[in-house]
Design a protein around this nucleic acid. Sequence first.
DNA 1: GTGAAAGCGCTAACAA
DNA 2: TTGTTAGCGCTTTCAC
Lengths: 339, 339
Amino acid sequence: MRKSPEITIHHLANELKISASTVSRALNDNIKISEKTRQLVRQKAIEMGYRPNVLAANLRSKKTNTIGVVVPRIDRYFFSSAISGIEDYAWTKGFNVIITQSNDLLLKEINCVQTLFNNRVDGMIISISMQTNEDKHLRLFSDKNIPIIFFDRFCPTIDCDRIVVDDFNTGHKITSHLIERGCKRIAHIAGPELLNIYRDRKDGYLKALKEAGIPVIEGYLEITGLTKEEGKLAFARLMSLPNPPDGVFCGNDTTALSALEYCQINNLKVPNDVALVGFSDEPFSAVVTPSLSTVKQPGYQMGFQAAQKIIYRIKNSNSIIPFEHFILPTQLIIRESSK
Amino acid sequence: MRKSPEITIHHLANELKISASTVSRALNDNIKISEKTRQLVRQKAIEMGYRPNVLAANLRSKKTNTIGVVVPRIDRYFFSSAISGIEDYAWTKGFNVIITQSNDLLLKEINCVQTLFNNRVDGMIISISMQTNEDKHLRLFSDKNIPIIFFDRFCPTIDCDRIVVDDFNTGHKITSHLIERGCKRIAHIAGPELLNIYRDRKDGYLKALKEAGIPVIEGYLEITGLTKEEGKLAFARLMSLPNPPDGVFCGNDTTALSALEYCQINNLKVPNDVALVGFSDEPFSAVVTPSLSTVKQPGYQMGFQAAQKIIYRIKNSNSIIPFEHFILPTQLIIRESSK
DNA sequence: GTGAAAGCGCTAACAA
DNA sequence: TTGTTAGCGCTTTCAC
């Protein structure tokens, strides 16, 4: 099984009795090449089964046409749809995408970022882990002016583009909705304080309560890792309080589902005994019974837009473009769990 | 904002008054280098902030330490969990992963495969699109002995490793289960005939019916693209037959959910009027009401194993390893929709 | 155990 | 419009 030798631009050049640079130019649609030569080269390339060696081109041009992505978990719908958006746009511009996942671990994230850096990606789109409380690894990029774009979860100490949703107002909106439907004792299962998104949601919750003149009851604010298990424990604690809540704003749909399951087991009626609202609009939220009120986050669109922005930056790396913080709208979806 | 110049092995070599090759060897843990030199080089590398240029190394060594992945859609749970498995294993072996999605379009798939090829990936893990009825693009890899591994959806004309589940027996198992629970008129919403997985599931269905002496009723076999919409239409057609089925084996969970929704709207009781079974165990299946009977496919494990196998092949590319067809077990999960 | 030299396949000054 | 030349940063023989 001997491997057929790789065809290079030199082989094409030899065959056509022209120089390698002319071949290179013709293949790259350089302006200053005659149409005739271009045709000739292209045809020969097909004829000989030429495949450009992207590696060599990248090494020389110091561009990889690749963007790196770091997400906490690929298999969460919000993130996979964001990746889908990134991929779809990058595709149209001839960019490759390298995906890595941090598993919500700082150490793994640092590792991911370093790998992307070593692979000389032209830019990085990242949503940070729940543990990320330092930014040294990110400075690897920002110090060298390699574009970073945060989406959803960001690191506030790094100055760069962000694409987020308005977590504060969304938290406010959710809480107000619970108040309007008549809830008097509203609890919140929050995520780690470390992340702005969770802090903002919590602050929105507190603000809405304050505006309505509802006091925050001791023990009504649970701070968790927002996993299924932690959600279940947190909700159980809430419902075991002497004066349990009649409405709970859960930090994500996963914990809202945990709550729902707890209610089923313990014969609590949703929303009559306790109303529930989640966050993210996971695919299951619309179809559970009772269906789950939640907030739609435009994952695909966030990814798509992040890709647009970063590729724009990469292609205009010599011009100074001020950093932007895009805030995309969310949509409160009221379903049975809080009707 | 001037960029700090990149540190190369030559810089390290100059500083240490040794040769670049020694630096290279020290960094790569070459056996024949003194421990002292190794330490010295490593320390200097850290001190000067040296980052290896993977591109250059790859160009020279003709290895990219990268595996390419093609899936129909990243945002489907089965595929994203498979990717997660690939990523996790590849990570432990220092391999990068480039993800592409075909959107179930043959043309896009061809494009993906070519891109991966041009990027000189060391191997490719692929689950083909619903439209894939040719293998020319795949021969790009197989002709050059670059490892391909199919998972789930494969192309039978390409001789290589496969990781699949036993769709035939699973289809048989599902149908038998419906028969055992008392269904007399069992229909099947199948996927495109082009793909083996759907053909096998269908054949398993037919076999089970035959064994039980149940005739296949005209119109009971629907062949669709297995989307939500097509599922709804197919199920509506089934239920509008003069003699509608009392059990339906749906080709995936998406169509089973469509069926469930149709039943809710049309006041049909599941499973009493019609029992339903899906395929894949999507996250929503356990939590819909009634909960959906389905088959668990080990997505993460399939990805993990595919990565193991392909990296093993890459690392042993000079030895001839016979191709294997791994058939992973599925698990029938009986829930309310077919109890 | 270390160094010298060659070159992976391509792009981009600079010349012509 | 095309050719010449010189690397990109690394690995890898082949010497010593």
